[in-house]
Nucleic acid binder design. Structure first.
Length: 427
RNA sequence: GUGAGCGUAGUUCAAUGGUAGAGCCCCGGAUUGUGGUUCCGGUUGUUGGGGGUUCGAAUCCCCUCGCUCACCCCA
């Protein structure tokens, strides 16, 4: 408000100490995904617009009205990625990953962009943590992916999140069902919302998860997609559910769950939370067996998920936040007539032995230095006065315990190596 | 794109047409070798911006920008 320069709408500055939480969440993702041998991929933030039109789908809202699209200086249409699966699939084809040992397991962490009106849990620049498994069509691959996702969320401390699963079948199943759905809804056309009437032509399946009250009424008695499944699609889904049962992963089958991106097939899933307001989807994902082929690759099956990192962090259990918060463990302070340069020299020694510390660089009264240390959330204060300098030791004061002791200067690095870890966050 | 609510100090908020304030935060100090409590002192505002009404506007009106929430859609 005081500045002429402001964040662009829908973006935000992530500041410490919050960034430490983000960092910890991302470390956990790397750790968990790593145990399943997923490796990180980093794709560009900008892509050719056509990539998203082809993969996400022309009739989707994302492509229709939510993309940051612009022409570069040569008139090529470029788009800030609205999601990351299309880029991963493109990279798979472009880099010949089809020749790598299959399946290829990739994860990504990064910003995505959608031009929407910002509100709770929805930003124009938001962040996703996602994983993609390419080259494995088996139902057990779906199961393993969901187990990995579940493990990640549990390591963050989430307990009661429920996975909603459904199948949208293979292409033949969907074609068959789409026709039945259109047959059912056409007589009711006039009672549908404007959006849904449009979808009847462009993307009928999307009408199923319309939240519009009138639409929901008209959907009473609608044919279920389950009944249109091919033998193979039915069997795939049954095996996925059996696998989840075998591992005790809680889920709910939601026959109305249809995801907003065109590339999905077979298994689709979502994790929603009641504590997020209107933007309740925390994770979305599913199988996309036709995507790589659509981008000019071979018939390579795929499955993946994307976690809304911003939303995830909104909901993060307090215990994990606490653990992630960082406090500065120590500061070096001079006493009496000792020059601050001596303190800096000592701090550098400590840093050489791996200790994290601040230094008081101004000559102040001890009283004032201690007060400042306390305000910075420092726990250990290293006092360096004439006596200490002459005796080759320091006085180490623990502000939390209110105790102090003398430590030989040579041992100080060792003593501070393991900082007390029980200090709370300062907010 | 549509609707609603809200814009006063870094922050949370007061001031209902008559001199823009308080708490917190931040900075300094209370005889420079001992912090947190306490006390003293200090910095910070074109009242989001522009226009109008009025002797006089943070306050009323119009426009505009921004924020928040919801619809829609999704992560």
């Amino acid at each position: 408000m005081s500045s002429n320069y402001r964040r662009v709408k829908g973006t935000r500055d992530l500041l410490p100490p919050e960034t430490a939480v983000w960092s910890a969440v991302e470390s956990t993702a790397r750790s968990v995904f790593g145990r399943y041998a997923y490796r990180e991929i980093r794709t560009p933030v900008i892509e050719h617009t056509e990539l998203f039109v082809r993969s996400v789908g022309e009739s989707t809202d994302i492509v229709g009205k939510e993309m940051y699209t612009f022409d570069d200086r040569k008139g090529r249409s470029l788009t800030l990625r609205p999601e990351n699966t299309a880029s991963v699939a493109r990279a798979y084809v472009e880099n010949g990953m089809g020749n790598w040992p299959q399946p290829v397991k990739l994860f990504y962490i990064g910003p995505q962009f959608r031009y929407e009106r910002p509100q709770k849990g929805r930003y124009r620049q938001f962040h996703q943590v996602g994983a993609e498994l390419l080259g494995d069509a088996s139902p057990l691959a779906d199961v393993e992916l969901l187990l990995m996702l579940d493990r990640f969320l549990r390591e963050l401390g989430f307990e009661d999140l429920v996975v909603l699963v459904n199948t949208v079948g293979d292409e033949a199943s969907r074609d068959h069902y789409r026709q039945r759905l259109v047959d059912f809804l056409t007589p009711r056309r006039e009672a549908l919302s404007e959006d849904s009437r449009r979808r009847l032509e462009t993307n009928p399946l999307r009408i199923l998860d319309s939240k519009h009250a009138g639409d929901r009424e008209q959907l009473a008695g609608v044919p279920e997609l389950v009944d249109s499944l091919s033998e193979e699609a039915r069997s795939h889904f049954d095996q996925v559910l059996a696998g989840l049962d075998a591992h005790g992963l809680a889920y709910r089958v939601d026959n109305r769950l249809v995801r907003g991106l065109d590339y999905y097939s077979h298994t689709v899933f979502e994790i929603v939370s009641q504590d997020l307001g209107a933007q309740d989807a925390l994770v979305g994902g599913g199988r996309y067996d036709g995507l790589v082929a659509a981008l000019g690759g071979g018939a390579v099956p795929g499955i993946g998920f994307a976690i809304g990192e911003d939303r995830l962090i909104d909901l993060l259990p307090e215990a994990f936040r606490q653990e992630a918060a960082t406090a500065v463990p120590a500061t070096v302070v001079t006493v009496g007539a000792v020059a601050p340069a001596e303190a800096l020299a000592l701090a550098e020694e400590l840093r050489s032995s791996g200790v994290e510390c601040l230094v008081e660089l101004a000559a102040r009264s001890l009283k004032s230095s201690l007060k400042r240390a306390d305000r910075h959330g420092v726990r250990q204060v290293i006092l360096l006065g004439d006596d200490e300098l002459a005796g080759g030791y320091v006085t180490l004061r623990d502000l939390e315990l209110g105790e102090q002791r003398q430590v030989a200067r040579a041992d100080l690095g060792q003593v501070l190596q393991k900082p007390p870890h029980d200090r709370g966050t300062r907010t």
